[in-house]
Computed example of a mutant assay.
Amino acid sequence: MQTARVEKRVGIRATSDRIWEIISDLSGWDRWNPYETAVEGTIAFGGTIALTEALPGLPERRVAGRIGDWQPYAQLVWTEKRGFLFSMIRYVEIEELEPGSCIVANGATFLGLRGELFHDKHRKAIRAAYGEIGENLRVLAEG
């Protein structure tokens, strides 16, 4: 299976507890994530997540995903089937370097031939969007 990946990392001067509090408040994502909004769902193994995705240069669309993995204060991972020969794994990971200092990785893995083609075509816009998401999360968590 072919794969491609986009990831942006940002250093945040906040505890993993504070960052997780922001990430796990799904209905509050609009405060820091302008590209994945109207988020609803349940963070639980096999839980579902729904959101409106509006990446630059692409039409807005409603996303339905399934929580693939999660660990409080560390990660939230969900998967989405995007059509024939294309699925995506979307994630936010928190690595606490020391109390009050974390690295947050915000990214996606595109699976399948169509996923790789989608990645190649939209990589710059997705990287910029994920960078902005990370920076907005940093500002909110540090504020």
Score class of each variant (00 low, 15 high):
V139S: 05
T52S: 03
A125W: 00
I133S: 09
S24E: 15
A64M: 14
A4H: 01
A141V: 01
E36S: 15
G131D: 11
I94H: 03
G115W: 00
R9A: 09
Y73P: 01
R82C: 12
V77D: 12
C102R: 07
L140S: 04
R82S: 11
I94R: 00
G11M: 06
G134Y: 00
F118L: 05
D120R: 13
G46V: 08
H122V: 00
D17K: 14
D120L: 09
F118C: 07
V92M: 11
G46I: 01
S101C: 01
I23G: 02
E7H: 01
G134R: 05
G57A: 07
D25A: 14
H119L: 05
T48G: 15
I19G: 01
F110Y: 05
A64E: 15
A50L: 09
A54S: 10
T37R: 15
L113K: 06
V39W: 09
F86P: 08
A44G: 13
V63M: 04
S27A: 15
K81L: 05
G112P: 03
V63H: 02
G134K: 07
K124R: 03
D30M: 14
A74G: 03
V77Y: 10
G100P: 15
R123V: 10
R127I: 09
Q2L: 12
V63F: 05
L113G: 08
R138N: 06
C102Q: 13
I89K: 01
I43E: 09
G68W: 07
A141H: 04
Y91W: 10
E7C: 13
R62N: 07
R127Y: 02
S27K: 14
R31T: 09
W29R: 07
R9Q: 12
E36C: 13
L76D: 03
G134I: 04
Q75S: 15
A108T: 14
F118K: 02
Y91R: 09
I133P: 05
Y91D: 12
K81V: 04
D30I: 15
D25Q: 14
R114N: 15
R9M: 12
A74L: 03
V10S: 09
K124G: 03
A141M: 08
